[in-house]
Structure formats: structure tokens, C-alpha cells
Amino acid sequence: MSARHTIFVAAVLTAALALTGCSSESDKETEAAQAVTIKDQWVKAAPDGMSAAFAELVNSGSKDVRVVSATSPASPRVELHEVVTGDGGTMTMRPKDGGFLIPAESTASLTPGGDHLMFMDLSAPLLPGAETDVTVIYDDGSSTTFTAQIRDFSGNQENYDPNHGG
């Protein structure tokens, strides 16, 4: 084999290894989005102000996944919230530090009176029967966008504590 041919083969192998490394990194970045399925999603109807999105987040993967943020055209700001029992036994809604954990091969529920995606300062009224898109972003940087139906719901009128009581 000539020196030129050896250098060419080495360059091709190096390029192939580099592409394989990029491909593996790309696969890693989308692992959460590929593992999570969104089911039974819906958004509470509201004329203005705040609303919330609920769903079942199913992780079919072998690693835990964490939702760290969300977006929606229905609201300029979407927060990850939890509901906790506050002083005097009142139910208090507040931002959830660390996001929502979806355990490996398990489910996390976003429910009224529990963890949910909070739409702050709605862009327009959310009318029953309409739909809106919601995108959840995972800790690996990947995301999933789903469409949720808007429904009437009058329950869960918790207090809001944006400062965690502090």
C-alpha cells in the first residue's frame, strides 16, 4: 500500500468515526423525546388570566426522564407547577423546583390538584372544544409537542404562591 493510499484510508476511517460519534450524540439528545408518550392531554378552558394543561406522561425507556420546561402558543409563559398543602391545610399551587420526573418504564400524571403545566397571562381566551399545542422540553434538550383539547373544568381553585412561601 502506498503512503497516499494509507493516508486516504486513515482519513476515511477518522471521518467515519467522527460521524459515528456525532450520530451517537444526536441519538442521546433525542432519547427522552423518543421514550416519552403523551396521553389523555387536555387544557382547562379560561377566558383570560391563567389556565393549566394536564396529561399522562408515559416513559417506555430504561432511564428516568425529567420535564424541565414547556411552551405553548396559548400563553407567553408556561410554568411547571405543583399543588401542596400549605399552612392551615389550604391547597397552594407553586412552581415545582426541578421539574417533573418521569421514572423509567413508568408514568407521571399531570392532574388538577397535582403537578400540571400552568399557562400564565393567556394570549387569548381558551374556548371549550378548541385545541392548542403544548411543547414539553426534557433535561436532555429534546422535546415533544402535542395537541390538547380545551375543556370546561370548574374544580381546583387553589391559592397561588409564586415564592414558595418565602
Rank of each mutant, 00 (worst) to 15 (best):
Y138Q: 01
D87Q: 14
S142C: 10
V84P: 00
P103L: 04
L127M: 08
T111E: 14
S75N: 04
D97A: 15
F153L: 11
R151L: 14
V9I: 14
T85A: 03
P162Q: 05
F153E: 05
A3H: 11
E56Q: 14
F54Q: 02
I102C: 04
P125T: 03
V58S: 09
L127C: 01
E158H: 15
N59T: 13
F8R: 10
F146M: 11
L127F: 01
F119C: 04
H164E: 13
M50S: 12
S62G: 14
P76W: 04
T144R: 13
G86F: 00
F146G: 03
Q41H: 02
G98A: 07
G166S: 12
H81G: 04
F54M: 13
C22P: 01
T132V: 14
I137S: 04
E105W: 03
Y160N: 09
D139M: 01
V36S: 04
L117M: 05
F100E: 00
N59C: 11
G165I: 00
G99M: 02
T144V: 15
R66P: 01
T71C: 04
E56A: 14
A130L: 06
Q149P: 03
E105S: 14
G86I: 00
G98H: 05
V58E: 11
Q157D: 11
L117K: 01
A16C: 12
A52L: 03
V43W: 00
Q34F: 02
F100V: 15
D121V: 08
G89P: 07
A52W: 12
A15E: 10
D40Y: 06
G166Q: 12
T14E: 02
P76T: 12
L126Y: 07
V9H: 07
E105Y: 01
V65M: 06
T144K: 15
A46R: 10
V43C: 05
F100Q: 00
H81D: 15
V67T: 09
A11I: 07
K39M: 08
M118D: 05
A11L: 15
L80D: 00
H81L: 00
A130S: 15
A74C: 13
G49L: 07
T132W: 01
T37M: 10
A32H: 06
F119W: 01
T71L: 03
G89K: 08
D121S: 13
P95H: 06
K44H: 06
L101V: 14
T37V: 10
D115T: 09
D133V: 02
G141I: 09
Q41S: 14
F146N: 02
V67G: 04
G141V: 07
A45R: 06
D27Y: 07
L117D: 03
G114A: 12
L80M: 07
D115L: 03
S24Y: 11
L80R: 00
P47Y: 06
M120W: 05
